[in-house]
């Protein structure tokens, strides 16, 4: 589904990703772990098409298409979804209106007919339940005045509504207490499916207790230096990142 080959990217003055290669098949959940500044969030941003990053080498193929060649909205149309580390507040645009615009824009991109407001309401109501999301949040402006937990739940809610093929979760656990973490993880787990892949980006192993990955990759200084199964996350939790950073340096 997703094939990243030797991806090099950074900001105008600083290379951050220095040759990342990764293959994700449908149905798989991959965790990307790594110390601060290793390039985890840059990887997520580059995949979603965030402006401000420059790709200087490598390729990214998604479902047979050159992902890097597409605008952010086209990527969403193809089925890529990024759950933001810091969800953005948009005063004046209601959550429902926002989601319906997004949902219909994606349908339009795929050549499908738009869904009317009434049908859409009943469609999203069916999605609020399993996230225990207050219906009142739907009529409020997007993320405005939401608590940290509500914002993250709202991200997962959007994911549930838009039903992406590939979900990238960027530090979804940051800023969550244990109850909120459980709620968000339950939401994510409910969305696991044989047709859907997930890329779970996190600094801490904690999240992976709840969202158990099929594969774990460790990103250090812009490269994936180690890959393994879910037990690799536990090892990192126990030993920290120091040993792996040293191994990485020694290996160069």
């Amino acid at each position: 589904m997703l094939t990243i080959r030797n991806l090099e990217a950074g900001t105008a003055d600083k290379p951050i990703l220095k040759g990342v290669s990764l293959t994700v098949n449908k149905g798989e959940v991959h965790a990307i772990m790594g110390p601060n500044g290793s390039g985890k969030s840059t990887l997520a941003s580059v995949l979603a098409g965030k402006p401000g990053y420059e790709v200087t080498g490598g390729t990214v193929e998604f479902e047979g298409k050159d992902l890097l060649d597409l605008d952010p909205e086209e990527r969403a149309g193809e089925g890529v979804f990024l759950a933001f580390q810091y969800p953005v507040e948009i005063p004046g645009v209601s959550n429902t209106y926002f989601l319906r615009s997004a949902y219909n824009a994606i349908r339009k991109y795929r050549g499908e007919s738009e869904m009317d407001a009434l049908k859409f309401m009943s469609y999203i109501k069916s999605k609020t339940k399993f996230l225990e999301l207050d219906n009142e949040l739907l009529s409020r402006s997007v993320n405005e005045g939401f608590s940290g937990g509500e914002k993250k739940r709202n991200e997962i809610f959007q994911m549930a509504v838009l039903e992406p093929k590939l979900a990238i979760l960027d530090e979804t656990d940051s800023g969550l207490d244990i109850d909120a973490l459980k709620l968000v993880s339950n939401g994510v787990n409910a969305l696991r499916s044989p047709e859907r892949a997930m890329l779970v980006i996190t600094h801490y192993q904690r999240l992976l207790n709840y969202i158990v990955p099929d594969f774990v990759h460790v990103l250090v200084d812009g490269r994936i230096v180690k890959s393994g199964g879910k037990e690799l996350a536990l090892e990192l939790e126990e030993k920290g990142y120091g040993w792996i950073e040293e191994q990485a340096k020694a290996g160069v």
Partner: peptide
Amino acid sequence: DALFYMQSRGIPENEARDLLIYA
């Protein structure tokens, strides 16, 4: 950031811009 957030959800840039101005 708001523009990119909306685009990342599938809303085309022009539409997102109009929506933000309206908002």
